[in-house]
Design a protein around this nucleic acid. Structure first.
Lengths: 268, 268
DNA sequence: GTTGAGCCTCACGTCACGTGAGGGTGCAGG
DNA sequence: CCTGCACCCTCACGTGACGTGAGGCTCAAC
């Protein structure tokens, strides 16, 4: 059983040209050729191609991939294990980037200024990311981006007014409960927290209870956020955090240690 | 407060040349220049740079990024929301790739042949990944790769013998328990399951209880894996799955719906 | 026996920078 | 004052991983 370039290309989601290129540079030459000169890829070639694509996805230059794959003392298992570890790190890094975007969003929402350092925290450091252009370039072509764009469309001014109003209403309700001396884990107060979570999810991004809890932490740990809350009532930020906490617990989300991102004070 | 190219480059984790390039193509021109012609980046420039880097990380070509960022009706919030959604999708996709690697590892371990379709399942389809080269190229340079390589080093033949022996011992213990008629959620049988999990974690990859449960599913849903177990004793695969399940529950990992990846029968 | 999909080999184009070359700028130390 | 030295500038060519035709062969199907 062997495969033509076209078949392999479709299978692996790459172009024929890419396979030609890999053949040219000796990274992946088909096991056989027909008398007419047609490339014929064997099953072993497919295994190698899978390895190539995984390492490529991890950002390795093709030349280095060739070296790695030709090490005689490393078999498929070894590569898979290595790839698993590297991919796992990338996943972690991606989660950090997402968290950074969430923080940036929150900062904008609360009109809090980020320091330059905070802004690039996630980039400046290690960043095991970057290559992935080829297929992503299709975002524009296959409508994936446009789809996302429709769903996350630019809000109208009316939308913004509504968002502001909704956020304001929630804050005031919270402040009222606080000043009325209601316990933060009381049902009504937890309901307010839940409405806040819904507010974020509806207008901004899918906000799980975990993420919501992270927001609560942020509000007390970063003085710039705390200030926004405490402008309404002194101690409101801490109160809010307790309410979010209780609300998450009520919905069966256990308390757990997450990223201990320190809240260093920055200039406002 | 303004910044020189070098400062910005260090902050954002890019090279000076990159900033020059962005200036050349008009993607990000510094707000000011000194009389000597030195670039001076303002705070607003940093905000834009952050956007550029996030979109770049998502694989957008620079030209398109310029278009997106110059849409007048889209502000920073809108971009952050968009980026959040796209990043979230990428994270999902990455998890799928990781899962695919885990399945491939398992297939090798059990000497099960994958069909070409399975091998490229995760590539052929959509793949919102690919660009990330620049920094990853440093893997070779800064020892990140070499470090990983040491930790996930190629096993010696002796290691492989040990792995095989360990796996064999576990299988046989399981088969013995099965034939002795022990309940799969009995303590001794769960201990065997836990030892299996430890075996995977030690030699291959960090195997959480969730992942372990996924393996259990795989063993009963894919006839090729089932066959390997049932060669020892008819029904052993199902028995193993129950044991893994019970073991996970014992460790406080609740049963939950994960990826419903179907186990389509393929030629062996 | 011709048609159309698929394959081949050049060979130049492109994108996002890397990598010097050759030279100005600006501030600390002698 | 001038001398380093780190930093900045503008060309301008190089590179990696392919894209994109051009021009022509192959082969199963009608």
């Amino acid at each position: 059983m062997s495969f033509s370039v076209g078949q392999v290309a479709r299978l692996a989601g790459v172009t024929v040209r890419t396979l030609h290129h890999y053949d040219e540079i000796g990274l992946l030459s088909p096991g056989e050729r027909t008398r007419a000169g047609y490339r014929r890829y064997t099953e072993a070639d497919l295994v190698r191609l899978q390895q190539v694509l995984l390492y490529r996805e991890l950002g390795f230059p093709l030349e280095e991939i060739a070296v790695i794959l030709d090490e005689p003392r490393a078999d498929e298992m070894t590569h898979l294990r290595r790839q698993h570890e590297l991919l796992t790190r990338r996943a972690e890094r991606l989660r950090e980037v997402i968290a950074a975007v969430e923080r940036a969003l929150e900062a904008r929402l609360m009109s809090v200024a980020l320091t330059p350092e905070e802004r690039f925290e996630v980039f400046g450091d290690f960043r095991p990311e970057d290559h992935e252009a080829e297929v992503e370039r299709r975002w524009g072509g296959d409508g994936r981006y446009t789809e996302s764009r429709r769903r996350v469309a630019a809000y109208t001014r009316a939308d913004w007014l509504e968002i502001k109003a909704e956020a304001g209403a929630i804050s005031e309700e919270l402040a009222a409960a606080f000043e009325a001396g209601l316990a933060p884990d009381g049902e009504r107060v937890m309901d307010v927290a839940e409405r806040h979570r819904g507010h974020i999810s509806r207008w901004f991004y899918d906000c799980s209870h975990e993420v919501h809890r992270g927001l609560g932490e942020l509000y007390v740990s970063d003085p710039r956020f705390t200030a926004v809350f405490d402008a309404l009532a002194a101690g409101l930020a801490a109160y809010f955090r307790l309410a979010v906490d209780a609300n998450a617990a009520r919905h069966g989300v256990p308390r757990q240690e997450a990223d201990p991102g320190g809240g260093q004070a920055g200039r406002v």
